[in-house]
Design a protein around this nucleic acid. Structure first.
Lengths: 183, 183
DNA sequence: GCGTATTGCGCAATGG
DNA sequence: GCCATTGCGCAATACG
């Protein structure tokens, strides 16, 4: 096993410049506004000629891929396109995820508000019950001692004007859709 | 953001590539991450060796930046580092966002479950009330005509065995502390 | 095996 | 001037 150059793939990155012949502006104009006029201003560099001619005449050989090859250029271009696409999608996905977070946060708030409301309603009802129970207790002595015959219950709770629960819960809109997430 | 100059630089990208020519491994830089490119092994191509010298001998001039410059290399390296860092953070952020989504989804489910439970409790209590009201109505003819003496209430609502709500909610674990959202 | 998709990396332009 | 961000191309690799 040994393999001679096994080291890790260290992207060597050479870069030849290739000026890109032909129309490169085939970009379908992604969303955001690209718009470009392509005025060619001075290329930053490269010397000139771009690599039309590599320093040494040597070109392909067993190991090298000649960048002059038409096929090479074609493949590169295809890959570049794919890369562009991939990155676009990646970005889109990120944005979507972010939006999802916002939506979920909103829904969370709504749910919490609802919980608060329900809790309040419950609390009111429970208080009513308690009050009722107290009234009962008032008129009915609680624990008759063992051995003593239970007194005939004849006192029913007086109205006591339980109208105090003037809470306006009459809306009673119980609209929970179960687990369905909102649109 | 960013779409500054409308003309995307025509990607001229020349790239002279200067392979690592001489000992380029001068980046010990253990900053945090270690990882560095190993000495080159060559295979990959390109100009193979040649790149030690750019295609044309000309280098600096009024406009071009000579890549041979020590300072240039230094700047490049610094930028590369910054780029790496930036990308790392970007990725991290994306991951965090994704996780946030998961957390929010979980919390949402919890909240919905709670709502369901509260709704049920409310419903039970309300039913009780209704039942009670009906019983009252049964024994108390609603509107005593004016002038008529109110009948002596002596019949209190029979138990009616309202035990039908045997749902064991006696646990009453109403752990909600009011408006406080659970942790 | 070939073709696209994804990923790491470097370069250059640009923003702050 | 420096670092941060971003678009882009290249090459290696993953995936079908």
């Amino acid at each position: 096993m040994s393999m001679p150059s096994q080291q890790k793939p260290m992207t060597d990155q050479n870069g030849v410049s290739v000026i890109q012949s032909q129309t490169l502006n085939s970009t379908p104009m992604p969303t955001g506004g690209g718009l470009q006029q392509v005025p060619q201003l001075v290329p930053v560099s490269s010397g000139g000629g771009g690599k039309a001619a590599p320093p040494s005449g040597r070109m392909k050989k067993g190991a090298s891929v000649d960048k002059e090859s038409d096929e090479y250029r074609q493949r590169r271009e295809r890959n570049n396109l794919a890369v562009k696409k991939s990155r676009m999608r990646s970005k889109q996905k990120a944005a979507d995820t972010q939006q999802r977070v916002n939506e979920l946060k909103e829904e969370n708030e709504r749910l919490e508000a609802k919980i608060k409301l329900l809790s309040k309603e419950l609390s009111v009802l429970k208080d009513l019950f308690l009050e009722h129970a107290h009234n009962l207790a008032d008129n009915a002595p609680p624990p008759p001692p063992p051995g003593a015959p239970p007194p005939p219950a004849e006192a029913c709770p007086p109205p006591h004007n339980n109208n105090n629960n003037n809470n306006n819960n009459h809306h009673a809109n119980n609209n929970n859709k179960g687990s369905g997430a909102g649109p």
